[in-house]
Design a protein around this nucleic acid. Structure first.
Length: 344
DNA sequence: AACGAATCCAACCGCCCACGC
DNA sequence: CGCGTGGGCGGTTGGATTCGT
């Protein structure tokens, strides 16, 4: 019943990805860009289905992904957005540019659900004692009984997403016209964004780049380590050796952002020298700064020239959403539910 | 040290929608 | 308009890891 799977199950590998597979995928996307996932397995020789490739890329290898513990801000934001949007993880993830929907979903299911259940039961106990009317907007069950219909919330989210997509498209168009991202420009943009970031978190926009750089660079490091081991002894069986466990879950911290530049040079250098249409990407500080930027969540460029009214409107929205996470998060969190639903 | 329970999270599955023909 | 296909999304699973006894 239903449509057949995206790929025939025979000869399709499942389970955890090996560093070699990751390298293949990353280098392919590096050359051809993300998309046309159907062609990826055949062109790379990966014994994976296209879906698996896409998932691996979007949930793990894609630049700009922040891994590790969720901050209080993020947690509150997720709770609030979940109350507002329900289990629309992709929509929620669009408000948390560094997190994947899968990550948020997992975090919700493993941490926040329990947390809220606990706090709710505490609430119930308190309210039954005091006989007071207490209603937490964050409660997962509560959102369904909200006066606003689900369809309305959905519509609002969709409008927001549409705006964001347009914003994304405009910024990438803008990028194409001025794609000679010089280092100072990049640093400028980065520092602009950083201005709005929470210094306490130490997770500035620049570390968005850093995190993805690190993701892939660590990967490469593991791989190079491994291949050198291979050279020494050809009997390496498990890719989980050579500390790949740790490579798979790189701890992100801003103080060792570019430690693995050499590893990058080794891979991206070769691509640069090839006839890749993205060969100018090595000019940037980090690979994804130029090549992958279109793939990352939109970052607003403050240095635009003349803007149409529409663009202005969009970019105002964007700057609120992406360039000022601290203030925006706080606003969103502090906002009552009704108000939050109106921010489109 | 050994074992089972609990927890985490990457990956898979199936459904849905958009798009091209 | 109907069909086939690719891609996106949310729910679920299962292996790995951590915790408690």
């Amino acid at each position: 019943m239903g449509r057949p799977p995206c790929c025939d199950k025979e000869g399709v590998k499942k389970g955890p990805w090996t560093p070699e597979e990751d390298i293949l995928l990353v280098s392919y996307i590096q050359e051809h860009g993300p998309g046309n996932w159907r062609a990826v397995p055949t062109n790379t020789g990966l014994l994976r289905c296209s879906k698996s490739c896409r998932l691996r890329w979007t949930n793990y290898l894609r630049p700009g992904i922040k891994r590790g513990n969720f901050t209080d801000q993020e947690e509150k934001m997720i709770i609030h957005l979940q109350a507002l949007l329900g289990n629309r993880w992709a929509a929620i993830a669009s408000y948390l540019p560094q997190r994947t929907d899968n990550d948020i979903k997992n975090y919700w299911n493993t941490h926040l659900k329990k947390k809220l259940r606990k706090s709710q039961s505490n609430h119930h106990q308190q309210s039954s004692r005091s006989d007071g009317f207490t209603s937490s907007p964050s409660s997962p069950e509560n959102h369904s009984s909200s006066s606003r219909g689900q369809w309305e919330r959905r519509l609002q989210t969709d409008i927001h997403l549409a705006k964001q997509a347009l914003c994304d498209a405009l910024s990438s168009m803008d990028q194409k016209t001025s794609n000679n991202n010089s280092l100072p420009d990049l640093m400028n943009t980065t520092s602009k964004i950083s201005l709005h970031s929470n210094p306490k978190e130490g997770q500035t926009a620049s570390s968005i780049y850093a995190s993805s750089t690190e993701n892939i660079a660590r990967l490469l490091q593991g791989w190079t380590k491994k291949s050198s081991k291979k050279e020494q002894s050809s009997s390496l069986c498990s890719t989980r050796e050579v500390d790949y466990d740790h490579e798979q879950k790189p701890k992100i911290s801003s103080d060792h952002q570019f430690t693995n530049n050499e590893a990058f040079q080794s891979l991206f250098g070769t691509i640069e020298s090839s006839e890749s249409p993205y060969s100018d990407f090595s000019q940037a500080v980090s690979p994804e700064a130029s090549f992958f930027e279109h793939e990352s969540k939109p970052l607003c460029d403050g240095g635009r020239g003349t803007l149409s009214v529409l663009e202005k409107w969009l970019f105002d929205e964007c700057s609120i959403q992406h360039c000022g996470p601290q203030s925006q998060d706080q606003d969103l969190i502090d906002m009552p539910l009704q108000e939050t639903a109106d921010f489109v």
